[in-house]
Simulated scan of single mutants.
Amino acid sequence: MITQPSYCLFCETELKGRSDKQFCTPHCKSLYHNRKPNSDEAYIRGINQQIRKNRSALRTACPLGKATVSKNFLKKLGMDFKYLTHSWKSNGGNLYYFCYDYGYMQVDDPNKVLIIQQQQYMDK
Rank of each mutant, 00 (worst) to 15 (best):
Y97M: 05
N54I: 00
Y102T: 00
V107I: 14
I51M: 08
D109W: 03
P110A: 03
I116K: 03
K16H: 05
E41I: 08
W88I: 03
E14P: 04
M1S: 12
N111H: 07
H86R: 07
L15M: 09
Y121H: 10
Q50A: 04
L114I: 08
S39M: 09
L15Y: 11
T68P: 12
F73S: 06
K21I: 02
A67H: 11
G78C: 07
I44F: 09
Y121W: 13
F10G: 05
E41Q: 11
S19E: 14
D123H: 15
Q49W: 11
T3K: 13
C62S: 01
T60N: 02
Y97W: 10
I44H: 10
L74A: 00
N48A: 07
K16D: 14
K75G: 09
Y83A: 01
R18C: 15
S87C: 11
H27R: 13
Q50D: 09
S87W: 02
G92W: 04
L84P: 03
I115G: 01
M122F: 15
G93F: 00
V69G: 01
R59L: 01
H33I: 15
N72Y: 10
Y7H: 06
W88Y: 08
N91M: 12
V107H: 12
R18P: 08
T13Y: 15
V107K: 10
S56G: 08
K89N: 11
S39E: 11
P63G: 02
D80F: 01
Y7Q: 03
T25V: 09
Q106S: 08
L95I: 09
C24L: 09
P110G: 05
H86I: 04
